[in-house]
Design a protein around this nucleic acid. Sequence first.
DNA 1: CAAAAGTGTTAGGACATCCTAACTTTTAAA
DNA 2: TTTAAAAGTTAGGATGTCCTAACACTTTTG
Lengths: 128, 128
Amino acid sequence: MTLPLSNTLQDYLEAILILTEQDEAVRISDLAQLLGITKPSVTEGVKALAAQGLLRHEKYGPVFLTAEGEKMATEVRHRHLVLKQFLINVLGVSPALAEKDACLMEHAVSSDTVARLVQFMEKRLQES
Amino acid sequence: MTLPLSNTLQDYLEAILILTEQDEAVRISDLAQLLGITKPSVTEGVKALAAQGLLRHEKYGPVFLTAEGEKMATEVRHRHLVLKQFLINVLGVSPALAEKDACLMEHAVSSDTVARLVQFMEKRLQES
DNA sequence: CAAAAGTGTTAGGACATCCTAACTTTTAAA
DNA sequence: TTTAAAAGTTAGGATGTCCTAACACTTTTG
């Protein structure tokens, strides 16, 4: 049913989620700018995501995540945020580098590892 | 001069390093098996690495890392090992999953973050 | 409301990586 | 030493992701 999404398309979902929460409507142009790619590329990616039922998009219109798409986007962002917090608060990595690393690592870590990172940081807070 | 290698080609280098240390000669077939891809794909990848001066390969012969190739391979493996140790010893991830996660994460973490992970684990050992 | 500016799409192509099928070379065994 | 098995290569094709150029639609604004 739901095949695993490529890293690239996960990035699209995450970007759409972020834009959804700050703008009213998410446009192809906004995505292109945030993702740092051209509009034709975004159009293509959006088409693929729509074909998987992860978002809704009508020609020349804005983009909306479906429930399933939002769920996946939220998971990706969760991984991103957990990793970033770990890098900054535990390792002392600079925020800018943490952001960069987290962008890549979010596609590499398993759910189990993320859950353990969360646990680890909680325990660490209690102990201090 | 040295353009950044793709994740795929970094994996090739790492595999060659591992095989180099356990067998006398590294063959295309060995690599194909270890990487889980077909021989034609390996032939192609090896050609690309040879073109970048990272390994030496004559038709129908074995594969040898150059000094530069070995250096890069060692770096990749270092990232891999540091991550794996962290996952197992600090987070308590199972060895099998740690291996899997490290395989992907090794292409995502910056040198700075790896260095900090090492530091973190050293400090942690001293404190215990 | 017409024209300019902005937004989105289509077409066509590049590149990396993988594959299968068919062929060649090398190695090993009868 | 010839032949069968194994190893390696080549050719040709698929897929995913990106691009530029050109075109189509929409929005803004004079």
